[in-house]
């Protein structure tokens, strides 16, 4: 398991005004690992995830991604973000563009691929998420589950080596959760490094290589899914799990 370190977080702090959301977070994610962040709402897990690609700027501490210190103002954050895919709770597909244009916009604009290369790749990715017939559809014509699968494909189009998932199934109707988790599971099995914020305990047990339980801006407990979910030691973890299981 101990591949090379992809994400290295030391003493991360994040304040929103006077509110301390992240208090002292240190964390390592290695190549090919799937790390699932669990915890009650307001525990800071989404904020932690958003700090990793600097959608939220850290108040203190250091985050190193693939050797680049993203908390350093001199780092070209846009370049680092090209390698970090992100999937959002509310999909955030570009509503004025077709599925195909959603996927090819960034790589073509950033001159990472030609238009035709990007199109070919998008077609393959859409096939992988089971939506090869939706290339010309607009987001408003898709169901929630389809939108989220397009969002995952859009992130993969950048050929990232890290994927961040911010509650990817929380805004979905129950019958659509499965299709999105299936895509994520496939991705994990292919060796993608993933950090996932989710309330899907089943997914965590089955797919995670490591589970981190957070509360009140701290990491309370971490370990294998077996350790944290089946045999939690911390009372706060036990309390949380008893409510969601």
């Amino acid at each position: 398991m101990e591949g090379k370190s992809k994400i290295h977080v030391t003493n991360l702090r994040k304040n929103f005004g006077k509110l301390e959301v992240l208090k002292d977070i240190s964390l390592d994610v290695h190549e090919g690992e799937v790390v699932v962040l669990l915890g009650p709402s307001g525990s800071g897990k989404s904020t932690l995830l958003r700090c990793l690609n600097q959608l939220e700027t850290a108040t203190g501490g250091q985050i190193v991604i693939d050797g680049y210190d993203v908390t350093d103002r001199h780092t070209n954050i846009n370049k680092v973000r090209e390698n970090i895919g992100m999937v959002f709770q509310h999909f955030n597909l570009f509503n004025h563009l077709t599925v195909m244009d959603n996927m090819t916009l960034a790589p073509v604009h950033l001159k990472l691929m030609s238009k035709s290369e990007a199109k070919d790749m998008a077609e393959q990715l859409l096939k992988r998420v089971g939506l090869e017939d939706k290339a010309d559809a607009y987001p408003s014509q898709l169901s929630g589950g389809q939108k989220q699968r397009v969002a995952i494909a859009r992130a993969l189009e950048m050929k990232p080596d890290i994927m961040l998932f911010d509650e990817p199934t929380s805004a979905l109707d129950p019958e659509m959760v499965g299709e999105v988790l299936a895509v994520m599971k496939k991705l994990a099995n292919e060796g993608m490094t993933m950090v996932v914020v989710t309330h899907e305990i089943g997914f965590a047990r089955e797919v995670a290589s490591r589970v981190i339980f957070m509360e009140g801006g701290y990491i309370v407990e971490e370990g294998t899914p077996d350790e944290v979910i089946l045999h939690p030691r911390e009372p706060r973890t036990i309390d949380f799990l008893s409510k969601v299981l």
């Binding site: 973000r81 959002f88 570009f94 916009l105 960034a106 604009h109 969002a151 950048m158």
Partner: peptide, 21 residues
């Protein structure tokens, strides 16, 4: 806001996101 965030997460600059998205 999510539209801008999605664009930024793909590596596009603030001004590109404004202009394209």
């Amino acid at each position: 806001r999510g539209q801008m965030e999605a664009g930024r997460s793909l590596g596009l600059s603030y001004s590109s996101c404004m202009a394209l998205i």
